[in-house]
């Protein structure tokens, strides 16, 4: 896994959140927790998971998604990048 790949995925997630958040003037970065900070509603969250799986041809299992750290942009990006490289 390269940091370039992680950065690419991370940028994709940040842009997705920025495009889909209902909040104004929000700054999204690798430390953002899109669930706890209520950046995304449940439909936008579900749509993001599906979009990531489709965009990067990966599958995120239910067990993996239960990890609370997956709500954080940086950790989610690393997990996706790891799967792409696997």
């Amino acid at each position: 896994m390269t940091s370039t790949l992680t950065n690419k995925v991370q940028q994709f997630i940040i842009e997705y959140i920025e495009d889909n958040t209902a909040l104004d003037n929000v700054t999204v970065n690798e430390a953002s927790n899109f669930v706890n900070e209520q950046l995304l509603d449940s439909f936008a969250t579900l749509s993001m998971i599906m979009t990531l799986e489709s965009e990067f041809s990966i599958k995120l299992s239910t067990a993996e998604l239960t990890d609370e750290k997956m709500r954080v942009v940086g950790f989610l990006a690393e997990s996706v990048a790891r799967k792409i490289s696997a």
Binding site: T45, I49, M50, A63, L65, T66
Partner: peptide
């Protein structure tokens, strides 16, 4: 269908 959502939000 909604298992990924429940896993992420309501584990």
């Amino acid at each position: 269908w909604s298992a990924p959502l429940r896993a992420m939000l309501y584990r």
